[in-house]
Design a protein around this nucleic acid. Structure first.
Lengths: 235, 235
DNA sequence: GCGGGGCAGTTTGCATGCAACGGGGGATGT
DNA sequence: ACATCCCCCGTTGCATGCAAACTGCCCCGC
């Protein structure tokens, strides 16, 4: 079954997508080793293709390649996380500025449906919910038609899920859905300033909730827990 | 001579840098074929390493890999150029906002020296001048300490030189140096709004001069010349 | 003269083989 | 008991081999 014809040149891409998906689904947690031959054996390809996929993923910042020591799923630091969200802020600001008042009817419909799907998944399916929250941002980016922005936003959203996996509290995407809806409303009525403001607030709230949540009155053990995790210690 | 010890794991990177440099120097013009074995023979490595470098370069947008047909130096369209500069605008805005009033004395010194070098090269050495103009932007980005922004600005500046190589008029980087100096002045006195304004103006003037320069009253042959070049025609 | 089909040379796609690096664990010496 | 050294095995780094795909060319039929 499922014998994919697999034209020449498609298999490398397939390996890349398979690994990327596994990482984003956290089937491969940050820090996991990624040995070339076991992956190749599992996917039915040679180490050459696995290596090519790993090179691509390392360019995207999803895996880290340590010379002579193998590849692991990236384990970005808190500081990298802050840098990443700062870049997202800049790029997604461009996205909403480009889109404000420019959405076509089918695009509005697609966004509304996406938000509806987010609400449907909310509370029920945690991993789907997180994935959809990210995809809202990539969907917006794709509507700009700007290939460069699309690529970077995709990359940053993907890396953001690594950050949230490492440092985010559970349920940290709670209020996101309503914020998405508000952004869409402002885009529809061409209230550019408000749309930008909402997007900045949205991203900032994600960062503060996820990245620096243990500042006020937390238990010291909770603080250390995240550092321990970041250093590969602890349970 | 020049027997580089070339530790294991360094050679792939070396091939990547060599090719990147050749492309940015326009020793390899946009559209040039990049056959794996002749490159490998020339650099003294196997096709495997060349292929890895080409994959990296294609991720950076400097090379286009056509399945079963080999790699060529990227030949971005005018539209891609506009997209690229839009993204630069967004990211470099973040750069100046981050840097405004934050420059240390050594950093100011380094920037002043860089601008001096730009002025020294101006008019004398065209290719050096272009390279330094780009490096001013990457230098600013590097001073933010934000690895994500550094990476993206580097990538976008590199791709910008492809765009300028294809569509820019000669001498299009004329006024850039004084604009660089103005930006630095505003950063020093923490006039953030002005620094942002100057940077936006600077990048916009590059795009309009380079990307859409043939709108007003040009000779039809000049207009077609760029399209011919873009299609691999003409002399 | 002109268009189409097929053959040969060239180049990519991918697997595999071999050497070298690194890590873990046991043996050895103090 | 503890530290050190060294060997062995697993894994990576890279070259090479082989099959498939593309290119251009020539020959043949019209």
């Amino acid at each position: 079954m499922a014998e994919k014809a697999a034209k020449s040149g498609m298999r490398a891409q397939a390996v890349h997508r398979a690994l990327k998906r596994a990482i984003l689904d956290q089937a491969l947690a940050p820090g996991s080793k990624l040995p070339e031959d076991s992956i190749g054996e599992r996917l039915g390809v040679s180490r050459t293709l696995v290596r090519e996929a790993l090179v691509r993923l390392s360019e995207e910042g999803l895996v880290e390649m340590r010379p002579n020591k193998g590849a692991v799923v990236a384990r970005p630091s808190l500081e990298e996380g802050r840098h990443l969200f700062a870049a997202r802020l800049a790029l997604e600001r461009l996205v909403v500025e480009s889109l404000s008042g420019q959405l076509t009817a089918p695009q509005e419909k697609q966004l509304l449906e996406h938000i509806a799907a987010e609400e449907a998944a909310r509370g029920r399916d945690e991993s789907t919910s997180i994935r959809l929250a990210g995809e809202f941002h990539t969907l917006l980016a794709s509507m700009t038609g700007n290939a460069v922005v699309i690529r970077y936003v995709n990359e940053l959203v993907a890396r953001s899920s690594l950050i949230l996996a490492l440092y985010g509290r559970p349920h940290s995407s709670e209020c996101a859905v309503s914020e998405h809806r508000e952004i869409l409303e402002s885009l529809k009525v061409r209230d550019t300033a408000n749309a930008v403001r909402l997007m900045l607030h949205h991203l900032e709230s994600i960062t503060t909730r996820a990245l620096l949540p243990r500042e006020q009155g937390g238990d010291i053990r909770d603080v250390l827990a995240s550092y321990a995790a970041a250093e590969g210690l602890g349970s």
